[in-house]
Design a binder for these strands. Structure first.
Lengths: 158, 158
DNA sequence: TTGACGGGTTCCGAAAGGGAACTTATCTGT
DNA sequence: ACAGATAAGTTCCCTTTCGGAACCCGTCAA
């Protein structure tokens, strides 16, 4: 497995990382969800070099997560908008935020919150089974490789 | 914001990425959930260089996601087990898998499946509100920055 | 005493990242 | 007409990280 050829792997984690696994990419997408659209706004928000930002935006456009849309003619100017595929990534960001708040605590207050679009109130998102609606904690799930022996015990019981 | 100092950011996405955002890290953790524990098994599973693998495992131990446990005395041999904090990352992996299966399709079949630990049957995990149990689609949530103006419209409606 | 196993470390060239200045096109003020 | 500002990149060059391969160490079995 080579990092630069992850998109050809059978493993969905590897294929996912081929799109969002590079340095800065998920932070660019976070800014998109916060409403950032323009090159200089991403740049000042992230402190990333302009070179790298241009590269990441181009890749995200090519992979179909952002669309580059012209918002003025003379001189031509563009903004970067989340596509359907990009918006579908929101649960990943949500679970990452939830995990990081518990696992990597910070003295500072978070600069944004997750709220319901309908009520405007904060929500605490958790995983459930789509069919039964039953809550799925990490202990309720396992990853198995069909055809291979099971792990001898729960991974990471230690 | 500097990539090497993300752990000091107020943003939980940035702090999360300071732990799991480096090349290969999430793939190492995927292997942990599949039951891989030993250095050479990670190495042959990933094709990563031994040097980089040693570095990533050490970092994951320092950050508290893995514990290095001796399983034999002479010569001393160790295995890497998920800690509680590491296991808590499972929802991130689950949502990433769900997204990648839809967004980055592959001709090959996935090498593993998500199943219920209780019933052994496949599950389709989705996000719900912990309080009400209501399903949370990406459209039901928004990220807001308190004190700042709202984005003019839905981010990425285009 | 030779080879295998498990778990690393060292070395070095290649690729990616980072800082700063430069470019291009247009509008605004003087 | 000219200076400066704005927006979106691009170029240059140096540093850090990655990647491939070989090497090292302790132990055990043949």
């Amino acid at each position: 497995m080579r990092w630069t050829e992850l998109e050809n792997e059978a493993c969905p984690v590897a294929r996912g990382l081929s799109v969002i696994g590079e340095r800065w990419t998920l932070l660019i997408l976070r800014d998109c969800f916060l409403g950032v659209r323009r090159f200089d706004d991403f740049q000042s928000s992230l402190g990333i070099t302009r070179h790298l930002l241009a590269d990441r935006l181009k890749t995200l456009e090519e992979k179909g997560l952002l669309s580059r849309e012209q918002y003025q003619d003379r001189p031509p100017r563009f903004e970067y908008c989340l596509t359907r595929t990009g918006r579908d990534l929101f649960p990943v960001l949500v679970t990452l935020i939830t995990w990081a708040d518990a696992a990597v605590p910070s003295p500072q207050e978070a600069p944004y919150r997750l709220v319901s679009r309908a009520t405007g109130k904060p929500v605490a998102p958790v995983l459930c089974d789509a069919e039964t609606g039953a809550r799925l904690t990490p202990r309720d799930l396992r990853m198995i490789r069909p055809g291979l022996a099971e792990p001898e015990a729960d991974p990471g019981r230690g």
